[in-house]
C-alpha cells in the first residue's frame, strides 16, 4: 500500500486541478450566454441583406455578379475554417477537423485541390501539421469577435475566387444545436445558393444611387462577410458550451477520484495505527 504522505500530496494536486476546472466551467457558462446573444443579434442584418439581394437579383436579371453566377467546373476550392483559439473544449475542434478531412479526401478523389483560410489558433495549428496551402489566417479574435478582423481573411478568398484561382468557397465551423450538442458543418458560401423564393412578379423597383451594380457589389461582399461572421460567433458559442461540458465532467471525475483516494488514505492511516499499537502491545508482552 502506498505511503500515506504520497496519497496526501496526490489528493492535494487533484484538488487544485479540480479548482481550476470548476472555475473554467463557471466562466464558460457565463460566456456562453453572451455568445448566444451575439449569435441572435447578428441574424437580422444578414436576413435583411438576403432580402434586398434577392430583390436586386430579380430586378436586374441582365447583370450577374460572379458570386451569384452558375457553378463553374471545379479545380480548386477554398475552405474558410472556423475554429477556437483555445483548447480544453472537448472534441469540438477535432470533430470539425475530422469532418473536414473526410470532405477534403472526397474533393481530392474528384480531382479538386483544396486551399484554406483559417480563423482561430486551432485551425492554424492543424494545418501546420496536416499540410495544405493556407492563404490567409486570423487568430485571437477574443470573446467578442469583430467583423473588422475578418474582412481581410474573407477578402483573400473572394479575391482568389474572382481571379478564378478557386471555383467555390466553403465555410467550415460548428453549429450550435444545444448546450450538449454541437455539430460540425461545411456550408457553401460562393457561388451563393439562393433559396428558391417564390417567383413573385415585380411591381416596383428601387431608385438606385449610384446604380444597381455598385449597390449589388457592395451588398454581396458584406453579405458574405456577415455569413462568415455568423459562423465565427456561432463557433464561439459552441466553444464555450463544449468547454463548459468538458470542464464539468473533469470536475466530477476529480471529485470521484478525491473520494476514492481519501478512502485509501484513511485505510492506510488506520493500518499504520493498528500496526503501531500491535507493536507496542507485543513489545509490552515481551517485557
Amino acid at each position: 500500500m502506498a505511503g500515506a504522505k504520497e496519497i496526501r500530496t496526490k489528493i492535494a494536486s487533484i484538488k487544485s486541478t479540480q479548482k481550476i476546472t470548476s472555475a473554467m466551467e463557471m466562466v464558460a457558462a457565463s460566456k456562453m450566454r453572451k455568445a448566444q446573444d451575439r449569435m441572435a443579434a447578428s441574424r437580422p442584418y444578414s436576413e435583411k441583406m438576403l432580402q434586398v439581394i434577392s430583390h436586386l437579383a430579380r430586378a436586374t436579371p441582365e447583370y450577374r455578379h460572379s458570386f451569384m453566377a452558375a457553378e463553374r467546373e471545379r479545380k480548386r476550392v477554398g475552405y474558410i475554417v472556423v475554429s477556437s483559439d483555445r483548447g480544453l473544449c472537448g472534441g469540438l475542434n477535432s470533430n470539425l477537423f475530422r469532418r473536414l478531412v473526410a470532405d477534403i479526401k472526397e474533393q481530392r478523389a474528384n480531382g479538386v485541390e483544396p486551399v484554406f483560410c483559417t480563423i482561430g489558433n486551432k485551425a492554424l495549428g492543424f494545418f501546420k501539421r496536416f499540410g495544405g496551402q493556407v492563404l490567409g489566417q486570423v487568430t485571437h479574435l477574443g470573446d467578442r469577435p469583430h467583423i473588422e478582423d475578418l474582412i481581410g481573411t474573407v477578402k483573400v478568398m473572394l479575391d482568389a475566387f474572382e481571379a478564378k484561382e478557386i471555383d467555390a468557397i466553403y465555410v467550415a465551423g460548428n453549429t450550435f444545436v444545444n448546450t450538449m450538442t454541437q455539430r460540425p458543418i461545411i456550408r457553401q458560401l460562393v457561388p451563393i445558393i439562393g433559396e428558391k423564393q417564390s417567383e413573385m412578379p415585380l411591381h416596383w423597383d428601387y431608385i438606385y444611387e449610384p446604380d444597381a451594380r455598385v449597390v449589388l457589389d457592395a451588398l454581396l461582399t458584406r453579405y458574405i462577410e456577415s455569413l462568415v461572421y455568423q459562423a465565427v460567433v456561432e463557433n464561439a458559442a459552441c466553444e464555450q458550451a463544449a468547454r463548459m461540458v468538458a470542464m464539468k465532467s473533469a470536475s466530477d471525475n476529480a471529485g470521484n477520484l478525491i473520494d476514492e483516494l481519501q478512502l485509501i488514505y484513511n485505510k492506510a492511516r488506520q493500518a499504520a495505527i493498528t500496526q503501531e499499537i500491535s507493536e507496542i502491545v507485543s513489545g509490552a508482552a515481551a517485557v
Binding site: T118, G136, Q137, I151, L219
Partner: peptide, 27 residues
C-alpha cells in the same frame, strides 16, 4: 445596414494582405 468598420478599397486591400502575411509568418 450599417458597417461597423471603416471601409475603403485600399483599407480592405491592406487587411487582405495582412491576413496573407500572418498566414505565411505563422506557418
Amino acid at each position: 445596414l450599417a458597417d461597423t468598420a471603416i471601409r475603403a478599397r485600399d483599407l480592405d486591400e491592406a487587411a487582405a494582405l495582412d491576413a496573407k502575411r500572418r498566414a505565411e509568418e505563422a506557418l
